[in-house]
Write a protein that binds this DNA or RNA. Structure first.
Lengths: 359, 359
DNA sequence: CCAAACGAGTAAATCGATTTTTCGTGATTG
DNA sequence: CAATCACGAAAAATCGATTTACTCGTTTGG
């Protein structure tokens, strides 16, 4: 019930000091666990602390240090499971080390990304975990470099000459997907991606293409890359399939590999529109897993990114730097898991009707 | 390129003052936009600020005020679209008013919820937006009351005697769902919920039951409530359907209404297990919408919560209190939108096979 | 014409800790 | 027995702003 605290001012270190009959400096030492305090005095401080309900003000405490015990985290968005889990992990890890995490969403905008970073610099955060909108060469990373901020880049990055990076091993995962699809007999595959995130998308595409061609030199791989936004992808995809249907380009692919979550959504929605079912009419695998993918019918095959590992290693690397760790920046790649679910089958196994347009 | 700043200490207000040839107090006034400064001096300050790249240190600036320009936000989780969008909104709104948002996840634990709140109190946040794990009567709200913190409760709350509350109008939305299902001819409906979140679940259940019974007095409404965790719900649901299948209890329901997102996932997964398809074998509506629900086949009907409105009104209410607004706490209910998608049909329209167990 | 009012600015106090410096006391040592 | 050391604690400086109190001219008003 807290003896009716109400609105009363919180006790400061001086209140504790005068109550315990010692100086503020001594209280500070006791709170910090310094041993050069007479046990008797320490006890009086502890008593006063308990009685007054004193707690150190982290803001005042941080005033004097150049690096405050605050970690900034900038993610492109919070709406997807991936970044939601990432923030949850990062928050827990920061807290474990006595730091406060301040999270912000760049909302897929590089301009906002830099603004946020400026504000975090104003706060003199000890470090930043940045998941850049585009890649490691954006203005945000530049700002961090120019201002001597310490940070780690994650997710949509490969490696950097100034910062440690941690991301999923896109290439290996894509190679695994290629093995699966080729193994099931697919020889005409569409890959869907987002051009903006150059580095990561390339790694995913190359990993896929390289392995697919190595296993089956006759495989045909089409690529549909939307520049920056997702909405254009929808129409690009529609055009692509329309072409395959009626026209010149030959038959349509037997499988689609989407290099990012939204692409998987768009692909599914396009399948719906055309009345195609997975895996009979077409197979589908997506990079990035989500909870719903295992309850739909069919369940959607997906690449699961190791969120915990990425978050853990990012924080380890970050704190190593905060504590003065030297050495060249390290680029870490964490292995993914590929979950082959019902949305992937062998081509020609089902009706493969050619798709009576729904509607 | 920022003339090679490197690691150099950031300029303080005194650096600006001495460079501009005025006192720190004057610089402070200029930065705050006070008009009682000679234009000439103001200009010199601006020049110095520009040249040195000075920015106010928000931490130092907040030191003297009792309420710092920080808003705390505590959500049960970040992994779902709903809370992800909520955090994004709240962050934007806080930023608009020059505040920094510190977000934390209680991970569905009331213990953690209170710990986070204690830490936020240490930071002397100006206000807190709390989405409680359970309801408005938990220990967290109690802590806020006992310590005279200002805050707003959202989502899993109805009303409170100490804090403003903002949440979706669960009752009205559920009534709407009832109208739809009854209108389509359903007379045996299963409602799935989570007992832990008492208040909200009751509102949703009552809103549904009340309207359903008013429209069709012969309707049968079964309820499966998991106590606190989602996993038990899975087996409870399985038992429920097993019973309906073979045994005494009569036929199985023609529609399921899930009162929360995870319940919708569990229901879908149970349908999968039994080989039931929506809407032919059974209809499904869920509280809480998600992006994937419109790309699956069938698309899943859902109640869409007005995230932006909730966030907006929560912040409005919060800042009104921060600025000293008086008056009794206000309980706001925001109207939802019900999206009837393909997962809802009329009973007896399809095979309603009785379900050849998949396997 | 002298006093009250006002305009513009500065010095100093303040916020709540941490850290460095100084100080006093008792114990050790030459 | 005086000089040195060690120890524990207090005093003071510091972090970077804001705010209060006060000073010095210049107006304005009675």
């Amino acid at each position: 019930m807290a003896h009716r605290q109400g609105q009363r001012r919180r006790p400061s270190i001086h209140d504790v000091a005068s109550y315990a009959g010692v100086s503020a400096a001594t209280v500070s030492k006791v709170m910090a666990g310094v041993t050069t305090v007479k046990p008797e005095n320490a006890q009086r401080v502890f008593d006063a602390v308990g009685l007054l309900g004193y707690r150190v003000d982290p803001l005042a405490s941080d005033m004097r240090r150049a690096k405050r015990r605050i970690i900034g985290a900038i993610m492109p968005e919070f709406e997807s499971e991936f970044f939601g889990q990432m923030i949850t992990q990062l928050e827990g890890l920061a807290e474990q080390r006595g730091y406060t995490l301040v999270a912000a969403s760049s909302r897929e905008s590089e301009v906002r990304e830099k603004e946020i970073l400026e504000r975090m610099h104003d706060w003199r955060v000890a470090g930043v975990v940045l998941a850049p909108v585009r890649n490691e060469h954006g203005p945000a990373a530049g700002f961090m470099k120019a201002n001597g901020m310490t940070g780690v880049l994650i997710d949509r990055v490969l490696s950097d000459d100034a910062f440690d990076t941690v991301s999923a091993d896109s290439e290996a995962a894509s190679a695994e997907v290629a093995r699966e699809l080729i193994g099931k007999g697919h020889r005409h595959i569409l890959v869907v991606g987002l051009g903006e995130q150059a580095a990561t998308m390339h790694a995913r595409l190359d990993g896929f293409r390289g392995t697919a061609l190595a296993l089956a030199s006759d495989v045909r791989i089409d690529v549909v890359l939307a520049e920056s936004d997702v909405e254009p992808l929808r129409s690009q995809l529609r055009d692509y399939f329309d072409q395959g249907e009626g026209g010149s380009g030959g038959k349509r692919p037997t499988a689609v590999y989407s290099l990012f979550l939204k692409g998987t959504l768009v692909a599914l929605s396009e399948f719906r529109r055309r009345g195609w079912h997975c895996p009979n009419d077409i197979s589908l695998v997506g990079f990035d897993d989500a909870e719903w993918m295992q309850v739909t019918w069919p369940a959607i095959a997906a690449v699961v990114q190791p969120v915990r590992q990425i978050a853990g290693h990012a924080m380890d690397a970050l704190f190593a730097r905060i504590e003065g760790g030297e050495g060249p920046p390290r680029a870490r790649l964490e292995p993914c898991q590929v979950l082959m679910r019902e949305s992937v089958g062998s081509p020609g196994n089902g009706p493969h009707s050619g798709g009576g347009h729904r509607q």
